[in-house]
Amino acid sequence: MKDLLFLAHRAPFPPDRGDKIRSFHILSHLAARARVHLCAFADDPADRVVPPALAARLASCRIVPRTKSSPRAGLEALVSGRPLSLTAFADRRMTAAVADVVRAHPIAATYVFSGQMAPYAPADVPMTMDMVDVDSAKFAQLAEGARGPMAWIYAREARLLAAHERSVSARAAATLFVSEAEAALFRAGGGRGRIVAVENGIDAATYDPATCHPVAAGAETILLTGQMDYRPNIEAVTWFADHVLPIVRQSRPAAVFVIVGRAPVAAVTRLGARDGVVVTGTVPDVRGWLAAARVCVAPLRLARGIQNKVLEAMAMARPVVATQAAAEGIDHGGTIAVADSPEAFAAAVIAALDGPADRPDARAQVLSRYDWGARLAPLDALMGLEA
């Protein structure tokens, strides 16, 4: 078996948010086919606990706590002329950890998860770069909607990060994106080299409505799940609570908007004081809430790649209403409703509340299109792991 180096900007466990779900499944896939050496950052103590089943399959594991403050990273970015996205993850301890692995093992290839980790990739080892999304495009979108100093900061980050992404793709054996739409966007922006879409999947056996028990919730629960300190999610729940929910409750006064996700910021927590809004914070298992939901919503205005929250809801056979941005890149086969204006979104939610409680067609679409094994099969050839 070959020795592979896997670099991740965030430890792939527990797989409880979008990027960690993708990296966890990719890491597990590669660890079944090679001796994988993991070097990753940890944001909190939970990220340093390797699941026993995965630990048994890893050849080695080095987790570096990320302790650099945002002000320090910002100052380093201004002084160095580099993107903040890179200075925030610049750490001598990670440099030393990677060097130790390369000295001790015959690394045949490197899998880099997220552009922030590209500077750590050994220069003389073939590299597969998983950008996931075009991060520079996200900052460009933020710049368009910002004012004053923040507009300048976002525009600077978009420009510098785009140059970094192009440089990395030029040296990578392959550059991966989570959807063909993201891959096409990167090509159009000057991305070079071999650019490939490797889509996210879903563990349909885990997200199975037949084996999940619903939590006690109202009969007209409207659910959104996600990391609630993430700006696109914050803006999504605020927009829904301000502009969509009042329209829905005019005709469905019993409807309750439930926001499920860890680390809710103050702006999200305050929404919970409103009539018809519940903010749970961290929950032991999101599947119970998905099973209880009458309709799941993804009202994101800013979204990149494939939204796991949509795939999970589809797998649980829930009716789903999403914005065009949240639905982009997902081959849903018409099994979810797509709307953008408050009025259209509210009408779609009301129609879902009035319609069938289950959407087995959505689950069938997930089973046929988004099995993790099928989605990750191309990695074997890309990483030189074919039998």
Rank of each mutant, 00 (worst) to 15 (best):
V168G: 07
V215C: 05
R92W: 03
D229Q: 07
A303M: 08
P122V: 03
A344P: 03
S80Y: 09
A184C: 08
A344K: 09
P106G: 11
I259H: 01
M314W: 06
A364P: 06
L382H: 09
V237K: 00
V279M: 11
S60Y: 04
A216L: 05
L302P: 05
E76K: 14
G384C: 09
D229I: 00
D380E: 14
G261R: 00
F6P: 07
A219L: 07
T87F: 14
Q324I: 00
L223H: 04
I153W: 15
A236T: 03
V320P: 03
I234D: 06
A158H: 02
A273T: 12
N200C: 11
E76P: 08
F139T: 09
K309D: 08
S251L: 13
A8W: 06
R249Q: 15
E235C: 00
H332P: 03
A339L: 04
L4D: 10
L142T: 02
R33S: 01
P284E: 05
R369P: 05
F177V: 07
R192I: 01
E312S: 13
A183N: 12
A42V: 13
L311V: 06
A11M: 03
P209C: 09
A317F: 02
V50S: 11
A158P: 07
L376H: 06
F41T: 14
G384M: 07
A381S: 11
D358H: 08
G193D: 12
A210R: 15
L185T: 13
A322P: 01
P284A: 05
R35L: 10
A40H: 04
S114G: 01
S169H: 10
A352E: 04
L271E: 08
K2W: 06
F89N: 06
A197V: 04
F240A: 01
H332C: 10
E165R: 05
F113Y: 15
V64R: 14
R48W: 00
G201S: 03
A143H: 03
D130I: 00
V258T: 15
P232A: 06
G272E: 13
F6T: 07
A183I: 10
E312K: 13
S136P: 02
I153M: 14
A183V: 09
R72W: 00
T225G: 00
D242F: 03
S341W: 14
G288R: 03
